[in-house]
Amino acid sequence: MESAASPVERRTGSKNWIDYIQKDLPEHLDWWPYTLGAIPLTLFGLLVTTGLLLTFYYVPSPDQAYESVEQITHEVYLGWFVRGVHKFSVDLMILFLLFHVIRVFLTRAYRTPGELKWVSGSIVFFVTLGMGFTGYSLVYDNVSYWGMTVVTSMLGNLPVVGLPLMYLLRGGEEVSGGTLLRLYDLHTKLLPVLLGGLVLGHVIIVRLKGFAEVKGSRGFHPFYPEHTLVMGAIAVGLLVLIVDLVMIFPPTLGPPANTQEVASDVSPPWYFSAAYMWITLLPGPLSLWSLMGGAGLFVVYPFLDRVLLERGWPMPFVNVVVGVLAVLVFVALMVLDVRM
C-alpha cells in the first residue's frame, strides 16, 4: 500500500518547495531596517539587466574601450541612461549592503544559528566590491588604468600566491590590453555567475536558518501576497529614485587613460576611497596586512563575538562602539580623500 505523502514530504515533513517560499514571515520584516537586505537584491537584478545591455556596445580592447564608453554615453539612443542606471545601481547596492551590514551588526543577528548567514553575506559583499573594481576598470580612463595598476600591484605583494595572482590578473608582467580583457571577463562572466550563486545561497540560508528573532515582533504574515507587495513597493520606489538620480546627474567620462603620466586625481569611487586613503597614510606592508586582516575578522566576526561573550565581554555595547568607530573612520577617510 502506497503512502499518501510524496517522497519529499516524507523526508522533509513539508508539502513541497512552494511551502518553503510561502513560509510565514515575522512581522518585523515590514519595518524598514529589516528590508535592507532585499534592496541590494533588487538592485542586483537591475545591474544584470543594464549590464547585459551595455555589453552590446562595449568593446574590451585598450584602443576601443574608452571610445565605446564614449559612444554609449553620447551617441547610442538612451545609452547615457542605461549607463547611468548601471552606475547608480552599483553605488546604491554597495550603500545599502553597508546599511544592511550595519543593521545586522548592531542587532547581532548573526548569533547562532545565523553564523552562516553572516559568512555568506560577507562574501557577497566582497564579491560586490570586486564587481565595482572590475567595472570601473572597464571605462579605461585614468582612474581605471592606474586603479588596475595599483590594485594588481597590491595583490602582487601578498606572500606566495601574490605574484602568480598578479600575473593571472594582468595576463603578463605589466598592465596591458590583456589585463583589460581579463577584468572584462571577470566582470561580465565569472563574477556575476559567482555573485548570483552566492546571493541565491545567502537567501536560501536565511530562509532555512530562519530570520533573527526580534523582541515584540509576534505576528506573522505570509510571503505572498503581503510581503511581496512590500518588496514590490520598495523596488518601485528604488527605480523612481534611480531614474531621478540619473536624470539629475547624468554619467560623465573623465579623460582617457594616459599610460605615460599619472593624472593628478586618481582617487577611486567613494566605496574605495577609505581604503585608498588608508594605503596612502600607512606604509605599504602595514596597510595591506591591516586591510586583509580587517576583512578576515569581518568574515569570522560571529565566532569572535561568541568567544568574547564567553569571556564576559558586553557584546551589544562592544558592537555599538565598534560600529560607530568604523563608520566614523570610513567617513573621515572619505572626507580626507576629497580634501586632498
Binding site: 595599483v150 586618481v266 596612502t280
Partner: peptide
C-alpha cells in the same frame, strides 16, 4: 609602492608619486 609612475619636481628636487 604600488607601481604608479613618479614625476620629477624641479622646485622640490624630488620625485613625487601622485597615487599615494
Amino acid at each position: 609602492d604600488l607601481g604608479c609612475l613618479v614625476s620629477w619636481s624641479k622646485e622640490r628636487e624630488q620625485f613625487l608619486c601622485p597615487c599615494h
